[in-house]
């Protein structure tokens, strides 16, 4: 096959993986810290995309529109955390999962109500192409990859170098103990949840120009995000990054080989990995059920 195709395929896969990572990182962090599976992250993803689209249409700006998308997603996730999750953190994981799924479905319904069913095209901030190994690739995709890596670095820095991060790592091990040291863990939860919501919103806003913004977009990425989380292992940030790029590549390169199989291949990979390691590559079997 053409080498050009491969280079752009890899870039395409990395950029897809970056979006998956931004979405899955929040999901994974929320699981690690609060032991919830926050399916509503997919709602913040859609909302981020729609708000970015709307601001873009209204003002013509692109990057600021994306920031607005992320902020709006963060704001909604804050409301949901205060009104819903704050009351149910103590419940078992299935309970929070069902509730968050309700929020997702209701939110997608609300989006359909506001923006309708028609997919909306969103302006791309950078149209330029740059030559990479002699192949022209879109600069925007490279920026998306850069953003994801920067976010990964930022989260790692917060976790390992700040006192808040220390508290989060400690609380992942044992929340009660952290609270016993006088740390307001509920604020930690809120902060993490809103942070996750903003990342999801950012993922949606960044993804907007690469696909069409439509009400189903949250549900369309569901399998990939789940695969990323599952392959990487719930609660592991490093695992999430590795598996996000892995899934991105499998989708992208897989479609070069045989298009219809592109979406199935990572699923098959996931099943194989689960057969081998039921809690994913980096997931801990020790986590409370």
């Amino acid at each position: 096959m053409d080498a050009n195709l491969w280079v752009s395929g890899v870039v395409y896969g990395l950029s897809m993986g970056s979006i998956f990572f931004l979405l899955a990182a929040g999901l994974s962090l929320c699981f690690g810290l609060m032991r919830i599976i926050s399916l509503d992250q997919l709602l913040y993803y859609s909302l981020g995309a729609y708000v970015a689209y709307q601001v873009n249409v209204a003002t013509g700006l692109t990057w600021p529109a994306m920031v607005c998308g992320a902020l709006a997603a963060g704001a909604l996730s804050w409301v949901v955390e205060r009104w819903v999750f704050d009351r149910i953190y103590a419940r078992e994981i299935t309970f929070t999962m069902i509730t968050s799924f309700g929020i997702l479905v209701a939110g997608v319904g609300a989006i359909k109500y506001v923006w309708g069913l028609v997919p909306r095209p969103m302006g791309i901030p950078v149209e330029a192409q740059v030559a990479l190994l002699g192949v022209n690739v879109p600069v925007y995709r490279i920026i998306v990859i850069g953003v994801a890596l920067a976010v990964y670095g930022l989260i790692q820095w917060v976790l390992n170098r700040t006192i808040v991060g220390t508290a989060i790592r400690a609380a992942v091990e044992d929340v009660d103990q952290v609270e016993g040291l006088g740390v307001d863990v509920y604020r930690l939860f809120t902060g993490t949840f809103v942070g996750a919501g903003m990342l999801s919103g950012l993922a949606g806003a960044l993804h907007g120009p690469l696909v069409m913004v439509d009400p189903q977009m949250g549900l369309e990425v569901v399998p990939f995000v789940f695969m990323v989380v599952i392959i990487g292992g719930l609660g592991s940030l490093k695992g999430t990054l590795v598996s996000a790029f892995l899934v991105g590549q499998v989708v992208s390169l897989g479609s070069l080989i045989y298009a219809p199989l592109a979406q199935m291949a990572p699923f098959a990979a996931m099943l194989l990995i689960l057969l081998w390691k039921p809690t994913g590559l980096y997931g801990s079997a020790l986590l409370r059920r």
């Binding site: 599976i37 399998p223 789940f226 695969m227 719930l234 059920r289």
Partner: peptide, 17 residues
């Protein structure tokens, strides 16, 4: 074989697939 949280995620992924 999966833990309940993984079970739920994998199943939803299956539906989409």
């Amino acid at each position: 074989r999966l833990r309940s949280d993984y079970f739920a995620l994998v199943n939803l992924a299956l539906a989409v697939i």
